[in-house]
Nucleic acid binder design. Structure first.
Lengths: 395, 395
DNA sequence: CGATTATGCTCGGGAAGCGAGTTTATTCAA
DNA sequence: TTGAATAAACTCGCTTCCCGAGCATAATCG
């Protein structure tokens, strides 16, 4: 997750600083659409004079619009601030192993006009297809940034190294080429990370200062979200929760370590418990087992119960380390949470002082649109930052 | 770790904002004492005119002083910026189970004039003794904040609940009573957390954007440090690394959970492995075993090796989750790291892609002064923040 | 319909930061 | 020794943010 543009012009502090309050206002409106001017002034400790000035500017640049707020009691009615329906847009891209989706979002983060297609994994052809789709989706609107979710680790320079696609350091910078005028910034993030971002902004963890997002697909991954921002680590490799050694030390993981948590709770773990060979597609295998367990298959239910308990026990450990406001589960983890025994295993694995008020473990609400929503949020973060606003202020 | 004062006066944005650049300058000088004006202007993207103005102000308030910088080549020589030797001070307090220490620090963070005494754990008497010691240590200097390290969880309101001291929600606010003029803010933090802060600022993790500090005393605790700031979690309870279930699930931990990592790597784990009863003082028991192992006692060495391997394996897991720049070890963990087999166990437990460049695991450099240094850093953080500077700007 | 109340707008002023031009302090070369 | 070259700091006028105070506005209440 990183910027692909770098502004190098020197003194520049005032040029960016000018937009700091505007950026805070936009962030507040994103967090709470329909906010009143009075409430905004209170939250940002601004005088009404300053609110007038800043809101006027943001209406002028097209970001905000105002509505009469419903009257409550005496006094002059205040107005509420909302994302302008015809304001600047960002393009969100979700690149997956076999297909991609592209959509358009405004300040409210709603992704609309989604188009998609399958792809053949050839970097050049995928890049071209995405560039065209981005241009089409943006058509007519003022697109000010692009966010992209990639099914792979993303290094600090924004390059994508997708081993499963056999991509080595692919630079996706050109997908913004048909936008403009002027260069349009691209921000790239990992798909699981961005799904976590989506949950932390508008999903099950909305408003949480500290949230943990965990998802089970093939293996287990996740993100620590601090005030809605993912912790990426020194090299962008943070969040490998699936390789915490919570499991059986005798089991060797494909990652090279032993006793990893991930392979105990995904399709491979279920297969081992059921005596099946390692499945080719652990994702759909696990879906089948969950369905059989729900349908009354005792052996499947037993295997699911073991995996659910392993998931629950590990989540407790993660809670001890992060002390989050909430843990959000995506992918197959939702099915495991629904298994009988999960809650008891979770509470039982918590430290005693936590058991009266266990940290809630909730299902993700964005489903498989999480990465796309997170990509939109990432692009909006840039576009509404002081730097992003300053970049475009000349227009 | 939290503020004990709360400024509630409303609009106030400009009043605080005025000091934002000054705060950034002070932060830069703390990070890099002896910084030149030119380098400062470059880092903060300030014009030389603005540097002149800000530095003049900070010299006026006594925080900074300037020296001729050594000349390099042609041109007018620049000056270097340093903490003023007679500038504002903060008081650092380290409250431990059986004694306390109080010292004085300037902008450079060096703690001097340390005094200390044993105490009897009575909250009222300890508070009084600390109040007097703080006044004595500060005597004559302009003390602008107090930082305190407590051997207990610290809740968001700054109250200390030290179960081992039988303290329930003790308010230490009065230790600043003899300072002044005006109320002097007190910031309170957990001792292990603050030891981590000290390492992240001026210790083995200096400059790291992401660092993990782990310490073994009785059990295992730690902190995730992001840009030198500890992640405290939703309720200030983050960092219970010792209760990650890396251990034997058949072992019940005193915390109520099973298989906790902490009891496997401390004195209790060593005793179990050696067939000894649970020691009354696991800390000194572990010290003895480490000494015996170093002296050639095979049984002790074996037990130490097992604990060191358990520590190493868990650290690898923590690395997978946080992807830190560095892991820093304090307390008994340093002795375990020195045991033969630690490095092999660590690298072997890493994911394969990490083994070529394993995240360094280093010893803490602050020793048992870490908490005191961290407390000074905490107080300086407040005093040099825009809010802290604005608070005192009337004087 | 006026009193009351809460809010938004206008205007002058304080302060941060900047750009451009000027001054200052040093090295280097004749 | 002296002056050119160089790099940095200072001065000054300007722009912009934010503020406070006062005025204008739009609702409810009696």
């Amino acid at each position: 997750m990183s910027a692909s543009t770098e502004t190098g012009r020197e003194p520049g502090r005032a040029r960016v600083d000018r937009w700091r309050t505007s950026a805070e206002v936009l962030a507040e409106v994103r967090r709470t659409p329909g906010l009143t001017r009075v409430e905004l002034a209170r939250r940002l400790a601004l005088s009404s004079a300053s609110v007038t000035e800043t809101v006027t500017r943001l209406r002028g640049t097209g970001w905000l619009c105002e509505h009469r707020a419903p009257v409550q009691g005496r006094g002059r009615p205040t107005t509420s601030l909302d994302p302008a329906p015809d304001g600047p847009r960002v393009v969100a891209v979700d690149l997956r192993h076999e297909d991609w989706r592209v959509g358009l979002a405004g300040l409210d983060g709603e992704v609309t006009g989604v188009v998609g297609a399958r792809h053949d994994r050839d970097p050049a052809r995928v890049t071209t297809a995405l560039r065209d789709a981005v241009a089409t989706v943006a058509g007519g609107h003022r697109a000010v940034a692009v966010g992209l979710a990639a099914p792979a680790p993303v290094s600090a320079d924004g390059l994508v190294r997708a081993t499963e696609l056999a991509w080595e350091a692919v630079d996706l910078g050109s997908v913004t080429a048909c936008l403009g005028p002027g260069p349009v910034p691209l921000r790239v993030g990992n798909d699981a990370t961005l799904a976590g971002v989506a949950e932390a902004r508008t999903g099950a963890a909305a408003g949480a200062a500290t949230a943990v997002y965990l998802t089970v697909e093939v293996g287990l991954g996740g993100t620590l979200l601090l005030d809605g921002l993912p912790h990426l680590g020194a090299h962008g490799a943070a969040g490998e929760y699936g390789h915490l050694p919570f499991g059986d030390p005798a089991q060797r993981c494909a990652c090279g370590a032993t006793g990893c948590w991930g392979p105990e709770v995904d399709g491979r773990g279920l297969a081992r418990r059921l005596g099946d060979p390692v499945p080719d597609d652990p994702r759909s295998y696990a879906g089948d087992v969950l369905a059989r367990a729900a349908g009354g298959d005792a052996a499947a239910a037993d295997a699911v119960g073991v995996a659910a308990a392993a998931l629950a026990r590990g989540i407790a450990g993660v809670v001890h380390v992060h002390d989050p406001d909430v843990v959000v589960l995506g992918g197959l983890a939702r099915g495991l949470r629904a298994a009988p025994g999960f809650d008891d295993a979770y509470v039982g694995a918590l430290m005693a002082f936590r058991r009266d008020h266990p940290v809630p473990v909730l299902d993700a609400v964005h489903g498989d649109a999480g990465a796309l929503h997170g990509a939109a949020a990432l692009a909006l973060d840039h576009a509404t930052s002081p730097e992003g606003l300053a970049e475009r202020s000349g227009e």
